[in-house]
Design a protein around this nucleic acid. Structure first.
Lengths: 195, 195, 195, 195
DNA sequence: CATGAATGAGCTTTCATTCAT
DNA sequence: CATGAATGAAAGCTCATTCAT
């Protein structure tokens, strides 16, 4: 992804760029802004990255790695598929609470997903596919209603979780992952469980 | 919104601009592109609108008027609050199916909602607030579980519906409002109804 | 100059345009501004004038007619050539006091005179040539020193009078033609009279 | 004045821009023209200057530095105040002869001085105030008539000198500073000296 | 390796002017 | 005659990116 292994000090400072992207949007954030907010000279950014887009990719990839890890851990946990779906929802909200800026940036680029196929793939790999697989599992283990459609439902879950989380991040500038997790997970649980 | 009342012929041709915005994104769509796709000369666009941003606003406002109308009609229908929530979900999906481009553009700007407060307000007025009100009503009429949180849940519903719809629009380039409506409305219904 | 004889009501309202030109400069004054300040619709201005430049010409021509008249009256007066030169200076300052905006606009366009030959000609006809002729007369009637150079001196007088007047218009926003006339005419008189 | 210290090579080539400004006027001279005539790419100009206006400022500031220097030298010379005033007049004409284009540009902007206060101040500092001070000195040392008004007279001198010089630059495209200096200085000398 | 300096390629917007009524 | 509506033709300025050191 990067031409060269990114030096650790840069890696941390670069994280500051997400707040710029989150605040002004990707297109309206100039390389100048990224340079300013990170303290890394523009030309140095170009020495390490191929361009502005690649910086965004790198940032989002880092976030999606966190999401994927959280989801993977939740799936690996104990309990029925439905229980573990519950855990996934809470895990995703915890990532959102932990990295609010990056999440806002990611959400902003979701609809751009059509234009950035690798992003669509990454979200799919990190969240949608694991969830879809878990739904299938749940139908098998009898914890999830047999009528659920994996494709639609995984998208639905993603939307329900992220938009609710985003709403709190944007409207209240804070996200209580526990409380919101209870609400969201509860509703989805009742909506999905086998009848 | 526009300085002068927009002549009807322009109004129709301008609708073509949404496809440009949907395809390339707002920032990457040049006024030149809007002019080309609508057949309206650039300077004429500037005669009627204050700038590119205002064209987007006008377009989204038009969509949100449709959403608001559909939601209002659904709410005015018969049945319990839960029944009418069901209708809202289906109505929103029908708007998405009818105006896919505009919906993609709107969704792309959701996370920008923080920066475009009037957009946040408009979405709130068209969808979130009516749904929140209906949830409260449902708790009163006994059709919706008393534990639901209006704020979080209206955001959740919005996310569930729109992201699922968007998924089909982006991934399959077609949205079967009826089928997806069954799935989404069903899940939400089970998740929300009084126990 | 104008395509059609300019209706009297327009003539008066158009005079208001000079203040716009004086304040913002010719190029920075948009036809829109002229329309606004005069209350004459843009398209109507184009119905009567060929363009913005022609409006300026018309305005300056009107001023230069005043200047020419004042100069002519002064020249036609009694006394030696030197006495009448004195009168010219005072007359020019009175015109400046009477039409300060137009004068500022004219002065602003003096150095543009190279590019607007008709303006150079008009200033020459209205001021420089009559003064030059009077200087020659003065050498003949013995009131003006024989060493004065007509060309240079008429330019010098124009500069001395107008820049002094302009200074008061710009710096003090008021011009006391009598007092400044005493100062300027006095100095020029002593500088020019036969020794 | 410039954001960054202007590299010497640019400084020289930029001087070429004055001819463009002088020929077509400031507003009619496009950045493109400046870029072409100087050979400096437009974007590079914007890298060093804040905008077109700032380029003009820089150019005029450079001229006014020359004027101020010439005036200062003349004032520092020997003789009575009247003698040194004589020297100032000749010095100013020599600057005009040496930098005719810049002078035409400066004169074109004099009446704009109201709108560009820093220009008014700079002309005041470079010419008007020193001359006014010298006039006061002359009244003290007895070389200049006690009736002269410093403010009006310094403006008068400025107008007499510059407009005469400008006349030759525009009408004859050449200025013989010596000959014109004799004429102007002579007239002013006779007009100002103590009686 | 890192970076200050430089720039090519656009982009939005403006405005004098025209046209249709 | 007069004018609201429309537009062709720039123009100033920005910014991602490259280069020279």
């Amino acid at each position: 992804m990067t031409l060269r292994p990114l030096p650790a000090p840069l890696r941390e400072r670069l994280e500051l760029a997400v707040s710029a992207f989150a605040e002004k949007g990707f297109e309206r954030t100039r390389m100048e802004d990224v340079a300013e907010v990170t303290g890394i000279p523009k030309a140095t950014l170009y020495y390490h990255f191929q361009g502005k887009e690649q910086i965004l990719s790198w940032l989002l990839a880092s976030l999606l790695r966190d999401v994927a890890d959280a989801v993977t851990r939740a799936i690996a946990g104990p309990g029925t598929a439905l229980d573990r779906l519950d855990a996934i929802v809470r895990a995703q909200l915890e990532v959102m609470a932990a990295r609010p800026h990056a999440c806002r940036v990611l959400l902003a680029d979701i609809s751009r997903a059509g234009r950035i196929p690798e992003l669509a793939v990454a979200i799919g790999d990190a969240f949608l596919l694991p969830v879809a697989r878990l739904l299938a599992e749940g139908r098998t283990d009898g914890s999830i209603d047999s009528s659920v459609d994996e494709e639609a439902t995984s998208a639905l879950i993603y939307g329900a979780v992220t938009v609710t989380g985003l709403h709190y991040l944007v409207a209240h500038e804070s996200l209580d992952a526990g409380r919101v997790g209870d609400l969201v997970a509860g509703l989805l649980n009742r909506g999905l469980r086998a009848r």
